[in-house]
Design a protein around this nucleic acid. Structure first.
Lengths: 197, 197, 197, 197
DNA sequence: GATGAATGAGTATTCATTCAT
DNA sequence: CATGAATGAATACTCATTCAT
């Protein structure tokens, strides 16, 4: 590959402006001009650092996925007490912090992009695959420690993933009228009941 | 409203072309020209029947929502045997037919649109509200008949809705590598276990 | 093919503006904006009638070639007296009228384009092939009538073509300091001597 | 003039890249970026050695003209035997080596440039003037030695020049379908017949 | 002596929309 | 009822050039 030696600092700075632009104006509204209006420099700076708009969007997707994963993995990786880790995990996947870590509009814009752009599709697929693998290994661990009582670990993992994503989707649609905290509590309870039998 | 005196037949015909265009080329790709390329007439026919592109998209959203609901309600409305109705319902919400009734790409394109267009947002919100109400009344019925055993009817309804939507989202992302039938079975089982306790 | 029913009148009108723009500003200078500045309408009219700039340039090339040929063929086609026809031919191919019928700069711009654009290259090739064929049949006629005395008709034709084109090229380079009339007379004389032996 | 103190070696190296770029991509395709892609250094090196793109192109024209002349003059300058010199001259001006010494595309690109750029126009004019002068002095010499038999030396010189250039032009247009060697022989014969009477 | 970040004017092309017929 | 000519703003992207280092 040999990424050109354009300063990576500048690149990731720019990605933030793309993020904001999409958050505020959506995909079609996030033109190079609009994005540039968030930054200091001239808009041609965008195509200087990222050759095409597609590249720019892919960089955003990469960043979002990275943030999305980082937040989750960093939050639990140091917890060695299994019970604590189990409970923290359940809490985390329905937590406001995680779901707001990446703006829901931006996340769903990226998801939308993934449907028509193969390069982005692959990234999402990989992310979900990694997330599923991680969920499975966590569930295996908890089962070994007698914290949960399930048979189909792989199936349960995708079931949980679906609930987490559905939780998110409910949120965009209902938004203001949706009581996040109440739902979160409820969903956590349901998932725990399912796992603990 | 005062629908203009343009032939409604022509209008709904056109909506189908918008549907196809979005399915094939996404939102940004579904320009008036592209849409027109699917039909016989000239592209100015589009703005003749629908004054603006926004109106055209709203018409599509309306049609999709209508189809989405119609399929569900029509499928169960005539089943009077409660057990059968209950089982058919669970089966239906995770069925291939329903989830493919409206193309997933088109559905998520509409969902994407709803995030930035207030008029479309309202429509989605209303649809989900109606769906939740319907789910609640169904659950109430099944509970009365002793088929299920839950306390928080309203909470359970939104939980189920989330699972259904999450199931869909899993599908777009994993697509080919995703075994629809197996997941469907699994999800149905999980939901039944949750409901029947 | 089925050329869209864009008025051909408008199309050929536009080609004239391209002609003028290239004459005045060369290929690189003949941007859509520049071309549009010659006409009444908006520049997007150009891509309305001709989808791409390439199409526009090809239309110009076609028109130039057509004019180029028309002038020559129309000038001699009705002359039935062989001697007159022969003399008129020689005069014509070194005449100011013919060489100025299409502006030399425009002609050489088209020739330049032909070097890098295959579609245009073919057109030039075909034109020269047609011109050679016509020259050959003329020479054959004159030979039969005893007006000229040559052996290699085909070779002589390409030799004459080269002289004609070289005459043109001399003209662009020398331009003002070049005495067109004197050269024309001289070249005519040389060619006649060669032909008549 | 006062050539800047930039290394002339580097400058002439760069001119070669311009040559290649034009040969491969034409004038419009020969952007500073494209040219730079042929060399090792960064593209700003180009404007470092040549302040503007125009200067760069002029340098190319100068180099081409120099090569063009050098090849001709060097080839005959040492031949003292008049008959040999005469025959070599005729052969040379229709030789593959000379006409391929500078790539035809590049040569005609320069010729094209000369039509719109006064600085380049002057260079071409001067070149042709020098070439004509040289032809005239050669013809004078051959006439004195009784090798040829013509009256109008100056006129004959421009006639020959035209044939040579026309020969080239025929070549670009017909290219593959054009039998260079056969034409060359034919043209040489014609010119000799004309000169020798 | 050379680099590469940054610029801003300019490119062809696309777009939804208008309007006269 | 429908067309298609015409528009002009907007699009992503490219360009030669400048300038600080």
């Amino acid at each position: 590959m040999g990424r050109p030696n354009h300063s990576d600092i500048k690149r990731s700075e720019i990605v933030q402006y793309v993020y904001k632009a999409i958050q505020d104006h959506g995909i079609e509204g996030a033109t190079l001009s609009t994005i540039a209006s968030y930054m200091d420099g001239h808009k041609s700076l965008l195509t200087y650092y990222f050759n095409t708009k597609e590249e720019l969007f892919i960089a955003l997707v990469d960043w979002c996925i990275e943030e999305y994963e980082k937040f989750y993995f960093e939050s639990i990786k140091d917890i060695t007490d299994y019970r604590e880790r189990y409970e923290k995990s359940i809490e985390l996947i329905f937590s406001r912090q995680w779901h707001e870590n990446i703006n829901v509009k931006v996340f769903y814009s990226c998801l939308y992009l993934s449907m028509y752009n193969p390069k982005i599709k692959i990234r999402f697929k990989d992310m979900y695959r990694r997330f599923l693998e991680s969920l499975e290994s966590e569930l295996t661990l908890y089962k070994e420690k007698g914290l949960i009582n399930i048979d189909d670990i792989s199936g349960t993992a995708s079931y949980i993933l679906a609930i987490v994503e559905g939780f998110d989707q409910l949120w965009i649609t209902m938004e203001d009228s949706h009581d996040f905290e109440k739902s979160s509590k409820l969903f956590q309870q349901q998932v725990r009941t399912m796992l603990e039998g």
